[in-house]
């Protein structure tokens, strides 16, 4: 028993320290919210939340630790209630509580939920008990189905997003090597640009009848024939024939 008490004594110091940490974190956060709300940004907010949350975590770790005896096995009861101001108490609570009277004690030493809350809990309990096991099973299955459906939806969306982001990194095809080559060949050597004037020329040679057929849709062919005659005339009567 002695040993347990000692343990309690030492662990209480730990707990008080942890609680003080949380209190300080909360206080500084509140101070910031009240005085620096104009300059406060989201990352700082998150930092504060993280700090508080980590303090809470370490407190619950201490409470769950082996060194602490199960606190629920200890009972705490008020020995003396007085309606007078207690300076010592005010000092201990840093001015938050001035007297230990009938009004505050039920709040501070409460071990059961408030009556309204308790009523609500009881209601829920009776409601839960009134459901037959078949019904409960059915509802459970339904819930499972819904959650798995939602999970599927979320997963498919995630896949979609993953694909989207992949596509963004991959970049769509914005240029084509073959088209580059076609264009460059065209402007540098006239490849594909000259083709039209050559085609009718070739079809012209085998049969003269073809020429008339191709006259209307391909005016180029028509022009070609006139060029041909001028060349013939020119080569005969030109004063400076080319070698």
């Amino acid at each position: 028993m002695q040993k347990e008490e000692k343990q309690l004594e030492s662990s209480l110091a730990d707990i008080t320290a942890k609680v003080a940490d949380i209190k300080n974190a909360l206080a500084s956060f509140l101070y910031k919210l009240e005085n620096e709300f104009a300059t406060l940004n989201w990352p700082t907010m998150l930092d504060n939340f993280a700090l508080i949350s980590s303090n809470m975590n370490s407190l619950s770790r201490v409470l769950r630790g082996d060194k602490i005896p199960a606190l629920r096995n200890f009972t705490l009861f008020p020995v003396l209630l007085s309606p007078d101001t207690d300076q010592e108490l005010a000092k201990l609570t840093e001015g938050r509580l001035f007297m230990c009277n009938h009004e505050v004690v039920p709040d501070y030493l409460r071990t059961k939920p408030e009556t309204e809350v308790e009523d609500k809990i009881n209601q829920l309990h009776t409601k839960a008990n009134s459901i037959t096991s078949d019904n409960a099973q059915k509802q459970l299955n339904n819930l499972n189905k819904i959650t798995s459906n939602i999970l599927d939806i979320i997963n498919s969306y995630r896949e979609e997003w993953d694909n989207d982001s992949k596509q963004k990194t991959q970049q769509p095809q914005t240029s084509s090597q073959s088209e580059t080559n076609t264009l460059i060949a065209a402007i540098s050597m006239g490849k594909g640009l000259r083709l039209q004037s050559q085609m009718p020329q070739q079809s012209q040679q085998p049969s003269p009848g073809m020429q008339q057929q191709s006259q209307k849709p391909m005016p180029v062919g028509k022009m070609q024939s006139s060029v041909k005659t001028t060349i013939r005339a020119g080569s005969a009567g030109h004063p400076y024939p080319r070698p």
Binding site: S175, T180, L183
Partner: peptide, 8 residues
């Protein structure tokens, strides 16, 4: 030299 698809 290079080329770009009209879409882009």
């Amino acid at each position: 030299q290079g080329s770009i698809v009209d879409l882009h």
